[in-house]
């Protein structure tokens, strides 16, 4: 209990879709995407979630971040002594209590500048009220300045003194390359005060140099900001080098859980996900 930050208790989720038969009848069919998922996420650790495409990993993230309802089960978030029932909290409030998320597709704001993408990521909405927005207001100014300073410090801490983000801060974010957009998506998580961060395939579709960079950033999330990380990944060397714990989801069920070595060496996981290789080193570099 003490060391757990997120309790996922017996969470199930089904979707239904309509099937049109040849004779024109339409019938609804339910299919189960998550089946009684139990997971206690350890505070301060990096937990990797692995499993085939369509296994239900992103759906699990959507449930934790409130974008989808569960059919059954309970979710509790216990950052520091307090206990929140996640099923009873509006999705937008989650960021304010410390749950952050990076999406599988970037979800940065293309028509905001690079800097604005950082400023807007402050989870404290101070100054975002319409009716004060056209008055001069000293505190608002001060907070905006402070946000900008914080953003520049984050860029410097993550990418060094002369980095492309500070140089391009006035450009629309859509002008960044795909890989840079990913980095921006990670950098903006440092603008909030997050305790638990959900990362959905952060390395999908980026080159090896950036993969290393992303691993560094995630390490900094844990070491410098004491964030707990839940990580969906298909890149096994990345998982091995970074994660503390690993969970294997197959067709909506958690089939294996434990240390990374245990899970990746598990014959069942190899057979159903990694492929029957004998060396586990260069096992996979799967794309989304």
């Amino acid at each position: 209990m003490n060391n757990t930050i997120l309790h996922i208790n017996s969470v199930s989720k089904s979707f239904s879709h309509s099937i049109k038969k040849l004779n024109g009848d339409v019938s609804k069919e339910e299919y189960c995407v998550l089946d009684k998922i139990d997971l206690q996420v350890q505070k301060g650790k990096i937990t990797a979630i692995i499993g085939s495409n369509g296994a239900g990993k992103t759906t699990l993230f959507n449930i934790v971040s409130g974008l989808l309802n569960t059919d059954k089960g309970e979710l509790f978030y216990t950052p520091n002594g307090k206990k929140y029932n996640l099923r009873k909290i509006s999705p937008y409030k989650l960021a304010r209590i410390g749950i952050g998320r990076m999406f599988q597709d970037n979800h940065i704001f293309p028509k905001l500048t690079v800097m604005e993408n950082m400023l807007i990521a402050d989870t404290d909405p101070y100054g975002e009220n319409a009716f004060t927005s056209f008055f001069y207001h000293r505190k608002k100014r001060k907070i905006e300045k402070e946000r900008k300073l914080r953003a520049e410090q984050i860029f410097e801490m993550l990418f060094g003194k002369a980095n492309p983000f500070c140089e391009k801060q006035e450009d629309y974010a859509e002008t960044l390359s795909y890989g840079q957009q990913r980095l921006l998506g990670l950098a903006r998580l440092f603008m909030g005060n997050y305790k638990l961060v959900l990362l959905d395939e952060p390395t999908a579709g980026v080159n090896p140099v950036l993969v290393k960079k992303i691993a560094e950033i995630i390490r900094k999330m844990v070491d410098k900001r004491q964030m707990t990380i839940l990580l969906i990944e298909h890149n096994m060397p990345f998982v091995e080098s970074l994660a503390d714990l690993c969970v294997f989801i197959n067709t909506g069920k958690i089939e294996t859980a434990g240390s990374v070595v245990e899970v990746l060496d598990n014959p069942h996981v190899r057979e159903n996900y990694l492929g029957k290789r004998t060396t586990k080193r260069n096992s996979t570099d799967a794309q989304a």
């Binding site: 971040s65 974008l67 509006s90 999705p91 937008y92 409030k93 989650l94 960021a95 304010r96 952050g100 998320r101 999406f103 979800h107 940065i108 704001f109 293309p110 028509k111 905001l112 807007i120 990521a121 989870t123 909405p125 975002e128 903006r188 909030g192």
Partner: peptide, 13 residues
């Protein structure tokens, strides 16, 4: 206007 889901995930009502 760009992305409502991203806004929600950043704590905006």
């Amino acid at each position: 206007r760009d992305d409502e889901i991203a806004m929600i995930s950043l704590g905006k009502n």
